[in-house]
Amino acid sequence: MTTSSEKVQLPPGTLVKGKWNGKKYRLERLLGIGANGQVYLASLGRSVCALKFSDEAAELQGEANVLASLDHTGKKRGRVPFLLDVDDFTLDGRDLPFYAMRYVPGTPVSAYLKRHGSQWMGVVGYRLLERLAELHEAGWVFSDIKTDNVLVHDYGAVELVDFGGATAAGRSVRQFTEIYDRGYWSAGSRTADPAYDWFAFAMLWLHALDGKRLLQLTRALLPQNRHPGELMKLVRSHPRLRTMEGWMEKAFRGGFQDTREALLEWRQAIRSSERTAKSSESHVPGWMAGLLAGSVVLCAAVAAVWFLQ
């Protein structure tokens, strides 16, 4: 059996001319090989984009359809459309279908936090929730939130990649990663709704900041014992996540009204957790406070004696 990852890769510099629309792309390098295709960085004139090739025309088109309808519903000025082109590339007499999408540079969120510190969690999370809120308001659920699909670039700017799994709200989730999945943790169905994304969003932080213990937990737990309560135990015993306990709990239980509310509460939770972090950092040592209290008492006593006289 041959698999797509064993398929011939196209060398950098290959000129890809679309059979139907005639655009000419130049492949720069291979970005990645997924379960159902290969993604290349390509240039078109002076702009860059990503091209995804696959042998499965129908499945590829399905992904392109998702991107196209995101472009239709989430109208916003000045934003680069998700889907740029759908076409076939004729190679050795065979048509190889592909689509062009915008190219998103960046680092997966866990790597970003490792390099720049967990204090970036606040900004990155805020931006990500903002993106999700837009998506949800347009009637879509991303569904496959995981660290590889959340790319962070300079100063915490965030983009989601791999929209192939995005699902219309109310439909069954078409693509998910087990440990991020609400159903896997017996915390709800696999029908796409905003709460499905909140759950995966909360898992994202657990995975990015405390991945080792999370993986240990998934290995140790019997399926019937998988429960958000177990996840909350991890949250409570992690120094950074503990400060977000209330928010995380609500996300695991799907307790927000909508994603805007989740966003608002995220901001508040981050602010107050920063404040507690700061106050505990600049904590005044006990002896100093004691000394101060002592001197105040002494001063008051002296003043009292002086007044009485």
């Binding site: 139907w20 025309a57 129908a58 088109q61 399905g62 359809n65 759908v86 439909r171």
Partner: peptide, 23 residues
């Protein structure tokens, strides 16, 4: 031969129907 032989706009429509059926 297959869906892939359709021009992309038609392909998009057919695949939309297929996805609908799938669900």
């Amino acid at each position: 031969d297959s869906v892939g032989a359709l021009p992309p706009p038609k392909r998009a429509e057919v695949v939309r129907v297929m996805d609908e059926l799938e669900e």
